[in-house]
Design a binder for these strands. Structure first.
Lengths: 196, 196
DNA sequence: ACAATTATAGACTAATTAGTTTAGAAATGT
DNA sequence: ACATTTCTAAACTAATTAGTCTATAATTGT
């Protein structure tokens, strides 16, 4: 028996949220029109405004979902192969995407950080929180490997994670601006040197 | 005596182009509406379409102008204080902007590279060219310092300039996503270590 | 002086945007 | 069975967008 009166929803919130997140990830916030999003989510405008209230509120939920899913994935990967290998796996996955699809989508938080910067105060605040949460995850993970003696570095775990992610996110930006294969190779070499 | 028949222009092309470039730089391509641009340039719609043809054509000219002005400035700076000091000056200027205004605008080419990526093919092609031209300038400048013995590095000038600019552009991205002062400091330290 | 040429201002167009409203469909508990 | 509640679809709104058109103003060479 159901708990609520009235007509039941014809869709699942988490399901359509995931579809929206993927659409935002691929296309960015402003370049995702509501009509496009609704088509991707497979629901109507009425249902949408009833459930989410506004495009910005939907995006906010997507940013949170993205961070959660990323950390869940990275956490299980870290448990399986360790922090150092997880960082290197991120580089591998980036190169894979570039090789397979010929393009890089980048991290939703970094992309959105740039897009919302100075224009959407509330979203920017949230992005900062999610981003710092992810950064903390990396720092903590790397500290584990340092403690285990698996990773040797002259830097603190904080500094190493900051620099590593800055370089990796920079790589996406460089590729999107038109970096050559040779340039990509050099940056990848730099990333590997940072944790090896 | 003037060479052309007809009513003379009430504005100077280079002048309004510079105004448009500054506006695009601050606000990005899509977030600069034509009406905003015209207000910033101080000309009317009619004059604009007569002179530039389209918003995209205007932006294209602005991207070229930006690269030219940047290289002109960096070239004279390099002649004055050398390549290594010029790179460090770029870092200083970035920190200055952050300290003074509380925000970072970033490089127009990198910003536009990300914004146009996968959406404006022609502009992306042009951005790649301008970006690689700037990258070549840095590599050549650094090579001079290496030859002079002013700069010692285990890397080629190409690799060093690639990694340095990737890290600096990454810094802008990180700040825009919400990096803390501590994180900025660590990345700046990394940049200084790269050329010292 | 005047015909030819070019520039300007502003009204206009057609498309797209996020968001609202409304009429009705589908489930509920009693 | 039926009143209540909730959901859905689609028409609608008001604002904004890039771009066009037109009437007129300002300059030229002859």
């Amino acid at each position: 028996m159901r708990k609520t009166k009235g007509r039941p929803k014809l869709f699942d919130e988490q399901e359509v949220l995931n579809l929206a997140m993927d659409y935002f990830w691929k296309h960015g916030y402003e370049n995702s029109s509501l009509d496009d999003l609704l088509k991707a989510m497979g629901i109507s405008k009425g249902s949408f405004y009833h459930m989410f209230g506004s495009k910005e509120a939907l995006f906010s939920k997507c940013l949170q979902l993205y961070r959660k899913k990323q950390i869940d994935y990275l956490h299980s990967l870290k448990q399986e192969i360790g922090a150092k290998a997880t960082m290197l796996k991120l580089v591998e996955m980036t190169l894979d995407e570039l090789k397979t699809t010929g393009r890089l989508t980048g991290c939703l938080l970094m992309n959105s950080g740039k897009e919302c910067y100075g224009r959407y105060e509330e979203l920017s605040k949230q992005i900062k929180e999610e981003y710092l949460t992810m950064q903390s995850f990396f720092a903590n993970a790397l500290q584990e490997d340092i403690d285990k003696g698996v990773l040797k570095t002259s830097l603190s775990a904080q500094e190493l994670s900051t620099r590593f992610m800055n370089t990796l996110n920079g790589l996406v930006l460089s590729v999107q601006a038109g970096a050559t294969d040779e340039m990509v190779e050099s940056i990848v070499k730099q990333l590997k040197e940072m944790v090896e």
